[in-house]
């Protein structure tokens, strides 16, 4: 049975870094970044040809894309979504607000960037971030993910 376990882990490692499924959470954004993220999925940018699909269930997702600032109310929702995602998970923060709070950082109901609540792996700047930038962010996220996928020997690479 050892050969089967090896083959399976090689297959799983390969599949985990191809065709990532995204979970998008709007965390107090002005919709600018959200519609740019949706625009990535539509014919002009069409990331579905790489097997990237936007899903609604955190348990199916590989990459969590968060747009907008964090406030006390949605921080709990964000943490909950992150906890439900299977390892190895990657978080991409999109837009100036997701990075630091952006133009809203002084507002009373804003805690700041997404990294105040959950660890962020890739930061995509822009107000709003362009679809090209978001796609680039996802590609970089995949590189990070590749390093975290367990190899045949069992431990994570590097």
């Amino acid at each position: 049975m050892k050969w089967f376990a090896q083959m399976y882990s090689r297959f799983a490692a390969r599949s985990r870094i191809k065709s990532p499924w995204l979970l998008h959470f709007d965390c107090g954004s002005c919709n600018g970044c959200d519609i740019e993220l949706l625009a990535c999925l539509t014919p002009v940018y069409d990331v579905e040809r790489f097997g990237i699909i936007n899903v609604g269930n955190p348990m199916h997702a590989d990459i969590l894309i968060v747009t907008g600032t964090v406030n006390p109310r949605n921080a709990k929702v964000l943490q909950n979504l992150y906890d439900q995602m299977p390892e190895p998970r990657i978080v991409v923060a999109v837009g100036s607000c997701g990075l630091s709070g952006g133009i809203f950082r002084d507002a009373y109901n804003v805690l700041g960037g997404v990294d105040r609540v959950i660890p962020v792996d890739v930061y995509v700047p822009g107000c709003p971030a362009k679809p090209e930038a978001i796609i680039d962010g996802v590609v970089r996220a995949l590189e990070k993910k590749k390093a975290r996928v367990p190899t045949e020997s069992g431990g994570a690479k590097a």
């Binding site: 107090g28 519609i35 507002a107 009373y108």
Partner: peptide, 29 residues
């Protein structure tokens, strides 16, 4: 209340010219 930021209060700390950039971000659409 999930996306409330409190934009209207920001007029306290910004110049009335700078508020143009803030109200643009009430809604991106």
């Amino acid at each position: 209340g999930f996306v409330h930021r409190g934009l209207e209060m920001l007029v306290d700390s910004r110049d009335y010219h700078q508020v143009v950039q803030i109200v643009e971000r009430v809604c991106g659409i």
